[in-house]
Simulated assay, not measured.
Amino acid sequence: MATHLITGAGSGIGAAVARRLHERGDDLVLVARDAGRAKELADRYAGARTLVADLAAPDRISWALGHQTLPDRIDSLLHIAGVVDLGRVGDLTPRTWHNQLDVNLVAPAELTRLFLPQLRVAQGHVVFVNSGAGLNAHAEWAAYAASKHGLKALADSLRHEEHGNGVRVTSVYPGRTASPMQAKVHSQEGKEYDESRWIDPESVATTILTALDLPRDAEINDLTVRPGR
């Protein structure tokens, strides 16, 4: 039975992945931003463990986890949480930049650093759920795309560094996916949101599980998923 540490399990892609892994009997360790959210996740996924750490404050993640019982083994670390705020470069404030960079890039780097010992022992798998914006940046997406371009660099470097330790690293680049985040993006763009036009989170979850379940003789480095409609 594998143990998976997951961020972003509360909604969207993260919820779909957590549910699928939970249904097949794997152990879940779910990261929540506060105690209230942790209780919600524990109630939703019976038997799951939770860790409280605010990804928006990556400098305090080590301190927060140091006061909690950590799993001895992790077979996969799934970075799925993310935030987005659109805006033109001429209007973006440092606070907007910092928030997206902290949650989308610095926090995944810090969690990876903290759990690398367990991942090395298990010869585990790190999955970064990136974005199409991690490959191409468009108008008003500068801060978010910068964080996701950085996440690609983090994954690529980690893959080279940990290959000899047997740690696999996968980046998944979903296109627009039906989720609360996508609803927010449409609101910021001033567009009507129709979730039927976009990728079902279950479809992205399928690609993530495919990467996790691949036999040890191979690994998926980069996987791009686009709306089929």
Rank of each mutant, 00 (worst) to 15 (best):
R44T: 06
L223Q: 04
L30M: 04
R44M: 01
I199N: 12
L51I: 05
T69K: 14
I13V: 13
T206F: 01
A107D: 10
N130W: 04
V127T: 07
A153F: 05
L28K: 00
I13K: 05
T112R: 04
L78E: 01
R44F: 02
K39Q: 15
R197L: 15
G36C: 08
P117Q: 13
G87K: 08
H186M: 07
H98F: 09
V52K: 12
E140K: 13
S131L: 09
G14L: 08
G90R: 13
G150D: 13
H98M: 12
L114T: 07
R168N: 05
K148S: 07
L209R: 03
I61F: 14
S187D: 15
A145M: 06
L116F: 12
I6W: 01
S76V: 00
N136P: 04
P117S: 14
I199G: 11
G36K: 07
T224R: 10
G12T: 07
N130P: 08
L114R: 14
E161K: 10
R176W: 12
A143S: 14
N221C: 04
V17D: 01
V31G: 09
G87R: 06
D102K: 07
A146N: 09
G82A: 13
L86W: 01
H160L: 15
A133T: 13
D213I: 00
Q68K: 10
R44H: 04
L111H: 10
K184F: 03
T50M: 03
D85W: 03
A57E: 14
F115H: 07
L92Q: 09
N136V: 15
D27E: 13
T7P: 03
H22N: 05
N136W: 14
N221W: 04
R229V: 07
T224Y: 04
L92W: 05
L30Q: 03
Y193C: 07
A16Q: 08
W97C: 06
A153E: 04
H160Q: 11
G190E: 05
T50H: 03
G82W: 08
D43A: 12
A122V: 08
E219A: 11
T177V: 15
R73H: 11
G124I: 01
L51D: 06
L223M: 10
P58M: 15
L154Y: 08
D222M: 04
T207D: 02
G47H: 10
L158C: 02
L116H: 12
D200I: 03
Y173A: 06
H138I: 09
R229C: 06
R226T: 09
D156A: 15
H138Q: 12
V126N: 00
G228H: 09
L92S: 12
G87V: 10
R197I: 14
R73C: 06
D194M: 11
Y173T: 06
G150V: 14
G47V: 11
D43R: 08
G132R: 11
L111R: 10
V84G: 01
G14A: 10
T210N: 06
H149K: 12
L209G: 02
Q182Y: 04
